[in-house]
């Protein structure tokens, strides 16, 4: 697998990443007034990273307002889908072959931040508290900073219709361009929020997504943390389940304590999940795609890019990957 970091195309960030041994970058989709990712912007980003021996392995997501009407099933979605196909073409031209997408109209949901180990600031979710929160209290609003609240409720079946409509139109283009679409599970994984269904908050939902439009380009952005948050789910079993289908295109490595209705993101070593068994599972299923460090608890004296937090996480991941390799070398 390729250990990766979410990075901005910036020489200083790229140099830091290369120093801690990163050769694979994930970028957020750069905004554009045209409603699709521009080839020139992607190509320039490739060049910045290439100067530091790094290649872009995936785009995490496009700005939410590039596809909000598609998610909500509103008029104008066909134009957005056309633009999405342009994005896929441009990615392919720029040599990027994985496009992640978050099917979360309301974005990620956090109820608050709590003080964890040594007072580090950790993301926390409490379902009851989240339900009491005001819409403008949503912490993460997507890359464009806009809160996308439709003026009507969206049922689960409507949401499935909307995602099927999307996949049926974009997957043939993705296949012909050699681009894989990787769906991120809904974080927090709850079935609906503020009247808007969240269909990718369970393993059944993820499986249904894959089965709805079978395609070699239809797969998952396997956010290990989100899946570990799902009630009753064993995340290591889930890696085997989807990995054996070769549907993990891209992974996020993260540890969580607790599950819905109450969980907290913790440091990778804090014992929230069996991180060794998880790393071994990715290796066992032959996963070779990018695996990025996910959000880390916020530590003292860190910069805006959380270099200390990410340095710890990347070090942890590298050590774990080497441990898995060393043990498999010993047993063979």
């Amino acid at each position: 697998m390729k250990i990766a970091l979410l990075l901005n195309p910036d020489h200083e960030q790229a140099q830091f990443a290369s120093q801690i041994g990163i050769q694979h970058a994930i970028i957020g989709g750069p905004n554009s007034p045209n409603g699709y990712l521009e080839y020139d912007t992607l190509q320039q980003a490739q060049e910045v990273f290439a100067a530091h021996g790094i290649e872009i392995s995936a785009v995490e997501n496009v700005p939410v307002h590039f596809y909000d009407k598609v998610m909500a099933g509103l008029p104008g979605r066909d134009e957005q889908i056309d633009n999405y196909c342009t994005t896929i073409h441009n990615l392919s031209r720029a040599g990027i072959h994985i496009l992640g997408y978050h099917w979360m109209l309301l974005g990620g949901i956090t109820s608050d931040y709590v003080r964890g180990r040594g007072g580090a600031r950790e993301r926390h979710f409490d379902w009851e508290a989240a339900n009491r929160s005001r819409i403008d209290a949503l912490e993460w609003r997507g890359p464009d900073g806009v809160i996308h609240v439709p003026d009507q409720e969206i049922s689960t079946e409507q949401m499935w219709d909307n995602v099927a409509y999307f996949l049926q139109r974009v997957l043939p283009v993705a296949e012909s361009c050699g681009v894989k679409l990787a769906a991120h599970p809904d974080d927090a994984p709850i079935p609906s929020f503020m009247g808007v269904a969240r269909i990718l908050g369970s393993l059944e939902g993820l499986q249904r997504l894959l089965d709805t439009v079978p395609s070699p380009s239809n797969g998952l952005d396997f956010c290990q943390g989100t899946i570990a948050e799902m009630t009753g789910v064993n995340v290591v079993d889930a890696i085997y389940r989807f990995g054996k289908q070769h549907k993990i295109f891209f992974a996020h490595y993260r540890a969580v304590q607790g599950q819905v209705p109450d969980f907290t993101e913790v440091f990778m070593d804090e014992g929230g999940n069996d991180m060794y068994a998880a790393m071994k599972a990715y290796k066992d299923v032959g996963f070779t795609g990018p695996m990025r460090a996910d959000h880390s608890p916020a530590v003292i004296g860190d910069n805006r890019q959380a270099h200390r937090g990410f340095a710890f996480e990347i070090g942890y991941m590298k050590g774990m990957a080497q441990a898995v390799d060393a043990l498999s070398a010993q047993t063979h």
Partner: peptide
């Protein structure tokens, strides 16, 4: 010494601490 680090090397130490932790 890595980009933008302190004299002691907080980023570098965080990286090494994480590395040894998992192993």
């Amino acid at each position: 010494g890595v980009t933008g680090d302190t004299e002691w090397g907080h980023k570098g130490h965080a990286f090494h601490a994480g590395y040894l932790k998992s192993l």
